[in-house]
Design a protein around this nucleic acid. Structure first.
Lengths: 450, 450
DNA sequence: ACTTCGTGTGCTCGTCCTGAG
DNA sequence: TCTCAGGACGAGCACACGAAG
């Protein structure tokens, strides 16, 4: 009957619109330093609470939009505010004249704050819980008509299976836990591969981010708390020894996406970085390049296998290697430093192969600032086919990793091992594709000169 | 007694190391086209399975490392492999001489495939489940000695609370659900703020990514399945109307981080983008700039409020506005297009304020390619203080968003509303900081010329 | 009396809460 | 002041039941 989450505005509190700029207290119309301090009750620590003061509204009126569905006892008008016609609208104006009609989730029997359960559906339809369970679990048994009725009722009542209860009842939930580092470029696309693959096996997915303040171990611990039946680690900052330890300690199969070698503890899924870079070198040699330098980023583990590809290809073509290795966790910076080193080193190569797109960006930027034209003077390539490689101003020849397939392969690997625990972990190498764009060209007449 | 996840290598399957490059079949030593096809049983579709063939090992030996802890019946030697001394080692060598001693999780009473429960701990110690529950729940009652014993036993047995069971037992789990888009620059840092804030309230966090194949609605549905007590949406591609709908439909408080205005349906947490940009303009004016252009990216909703800041500041300084708006979801590209427009437009401004760091990158790159020096000829600024702003080759003056505090504030907002459902949603504006770097300088003698 | 189909009963998963000893 | 017995949360599984063929 009523929305379960009540929002009636009977209280008097009308939180105020507050705007603060930390270091611009002199801007007229804004809070001064003392008010800023009061605004943040516990000072400047990250985890502190941000409490709006009772009434600091000195600029602009409050913007109050109607609560919609329910009584709205306090009489706060639906469109009282909108004092400032600022320009951040941009939204479709479809919802403007919207009537305050409730959503379709009109309650029909569900109790107050509780989500409806299978028992609620059963009671609503006058049948048993088990029949409902069979229908929603897609199990054979119930008649077509019963199925229809149950599904309609579930929809109508806004039923959602309680994932916690499911995990509890099934000895171990079928879910697959995924640890990933949200700041890395290719990992979101890997996730895109994980979800459909898991769904194809009837598994759910629980994601646990590894961030600056949350180690991989923390993330895995949480996943185990959800009783995941398998764990996929994407990327991660762990070194081999730590990953081995982790795999040994946890009671479910583990797969690692990104790098690593075949081993007895966990599955490994990675791109064919070596052959990818080989294809790059072949491409450059085909254009006529002979002096090809490689920018290596040793701190990024997945790039080691790429260097192998560079070496192999150069040897195969009978060309001399020139590897510039730059430490530093940030690839762009490493690329920039490497490029400066190359510029200082006298004779310029006609092509520079970077271990990834980020490093290539650093290389390109640095060369540009020194008046080197790309690709007329120097061809530059990357690896990853990250979004930035596609920008018109970079237009980077690079190697596309099939990120989605990395995710899929990882799921396949752990599911196989979950179903057959005796099975040995495998290494899956996913092929890559050379993507030729505008940053490579045959060496021009001025190429290699300074 | 034994590891729960058995890994004895008694089978004969020795999966093979396989390397494939999709479009480089001519590289000697690698699989040819036909083999590639066989390698991928279901062709080239993204979700297909990757199955290693039984024996394709024609190059390099298998790398087999000992399984460690358990019997290793098949007699596969611990260091038999390592055929190719490739160079991707890089790991700490600490684990090399590791003895195969089992991890500390030696079973003491836990059954086969099951994780230990409170009842297991109780049985192990000869006490009741409830006492264990009280200790692990940090509830008053049990004596110090009992606490000690229980905690030691929990540690020893490798106990982890069953999050699903907790969620089931507590009417509604205390967890906070977070929807986020892993590809966006600032969102990982927002997550860093969410975790400690939730922990401070004794809440867990469940994360649900919104990706190319998974809508915000999907992500929220999953979180509701976990019976989260509140939901925080970071960024998201939803327009205002869709967000309103979402907030109306779900039975728990919702907060949105990124943009939006105060409203009756959900909490809004955003940076003070307007005052942030005002500080940028003040900084530039202080350096002596008078002709300051603004690059606007209308498709990115959070930037609208920033444009307001630009306008306000320019008006305050009595300067004329010059706004270049570029559609296009990719900010870098929009920046590049805007810069080309500015270059074509005749007189160059002495400073360009971009709506975000990505757009600034596009501006800088494009200017550089046209021989414009930064900051000598044109100063450029961004917004976000993304990692790229710190690169030596960009060294971008920008505005730092306190991403962690955005996350914290969102948690505070929904927790407040969860505990007091009658409360009205608030808008929290988190202050920003101007970060001056090398991309801004007083206008030089050649500034503004072409 | 035998399947086959559709449905209902009872118990269990791990945790936490009420109340009693 | 400390400890514990019993039960519930939501879903799923094994099984038993009644009605058709």
């Amino acid at each position: 009957m009523t929305l379960r989450w009540s929002l009636d505005t009977s209280t008097e509190t009308r939180p105020t619109r507050v705007e603060v700029c930390r270091d611009a207290a002199k801007i007229p119309g804004y809070l001064d330093r003392a008010e800023v301090a009061a605004f943040y009750d516990r000072g400047d620590t990250g985890a502190s609470m941000v409490t709006p003061p009772r009434d600091a509204g000195r600029h602009g009126g409050e913007i109050t939009r109607g609560g919609g569905t329910m009584g709205n006892a306090g009489g706060v008008g639906a469109a009282k505010g909108r004092a400032r016609a600022t320009d951040e609208a941009g939204d479709t104006s479809a919802a403007q004249g919207r009537t305050p009609a409730p959503g379709e989730a009109a309650g029909t029997g569900a109790q107050e704050g509780r989500s409806p359960t299978m028992a609620d559906i059963a009671a609503y339809l006058g049948m048993s819980r088990q029949t409902v369970s069979l229908v929603l679990g897609e199990a054979p048994g119930p008649s077509a008509e019963t199925r229809e009725r149950v599904k309609a009722a579930a929809e109508r009542l806004g039923y959602r299976p309680h994932l916690g209860a499911q995990a509890l009842r099934r000895a171990r939930s079928t879910d697959i836990g995924v640890v990933f580092t949200p700041s890395h470029a290719t990992e979101p696309e890997v996730l895109d591969g994980v979800y459909p693959a898991a769904a194809a096996h009837g598994c759910g997915v629980i994601v646990s981010p590894q961030t600056a303040t949350r180690s991989t171990a923390d993330a895995v611990a949480e996943l185990l708390g959800h009783r995941c039946s398998a764990i996929v680690v994407i990327g991660s900052d762990l070194r081999r020894a730590a990953l081995d330890d982790l795999a040994r300690r946890i009671p479910v199969p583990l797969a690692h996406v990104g790098y690593g070698r075949r081993n007895a503890l966990y599955d490994v899924v990675r791109s064919a970085g070596d052959t990818g870079i080989e294809a790059v070198v072949d491409h450059l040699v085909g254009l006529g390049h002979r002096h090809i330098a490689y920018v290596h980023t040793p701190s990024l583990t997945p790039t080691h296998v790429r260097r192998t590809g560079y070496r192999r290809a150069m040897r195969r073509h009978g060309l001399g290697e020139e590897i510039v290795a730059e430490q530093g966790a940030v690839a762009e910076e490493a690329g920039a430093v490497a490029a400066r080193g190359i510029l200082d080193g006298g004779r310029l190569p006609t092509a520079i192969v970077a271990a990834n797109d980020q490093a290539a960006l650093g290389v390109v930027e640095t060369l540009l600032r020194h008046g080197v034209r790309i690709p007329e003077d120097v061809s530059v390539t990357g690896f990853d086919d990250a979004p930035l490689a596609r920008f018109s101003f970079l237009d980077l020849t690079t190697v596309n990793q099939d990120a989605g397939r990395l995710g899929t392969a990882a799921v396949e690997a752990v599911v196989r091992r979950r179903e057959d625990p005796g099975r040995e972990p495998v290494e899956t190498v996913v092929p890559t594709t050379l993507v030729v764009r505008g940053s490579t060209a045959p060496p021009g007449p001025t190429a290699g000169r300074r």
